[in-house]
Nucleic acid binder design. Sequence first.
DNA 1: ACCATGACGTTTC
DNA 2: CGAAACGCCATGG
Length: 114
Amino acid sequence: MPKNNEFFDEVYQVVRLVPKGRVTTYGAIGKFLGSAKSARMVGWAMNNSHHQLPPLPAHRVVNRTGVLTGMHHFSNNNSMAELLKKEGIEVIENQIVNFKKYFWDPSENLGLQP
DNA sequence: ACCATGACGTTTC
DNA sequence: CGAAACGCCATGG
């Protein structure tokens, strides 16, 4: 059983703060938490996110290339891409189009929030 | 205690 | 420019 460190909670918080129609990356979250080198831990935390209530919008979290690498961890593989499309994000073959445009950086938004 | 794996990212060849 | 290797940290066998 994984330890419930605040690291996990922070990850979940950031993911929940991602606005609709936006996406963030594991690296960005890790960097925001101060563990930029440990992007893997963010992904690992997300794997544990299945325990969290309510279910996290994990479909808004992708890798730095904008590929829906985590879709295999969803109940239904299509749900992740479908949810993103539903929010106005164009997704083709698990690849977000104009990913940079939809990218939402917590450090820029939470840190410089007016 | 060691090796292998992972929803990643950066650097090197 | 594309592929491979390395680094990071934690978990499981």
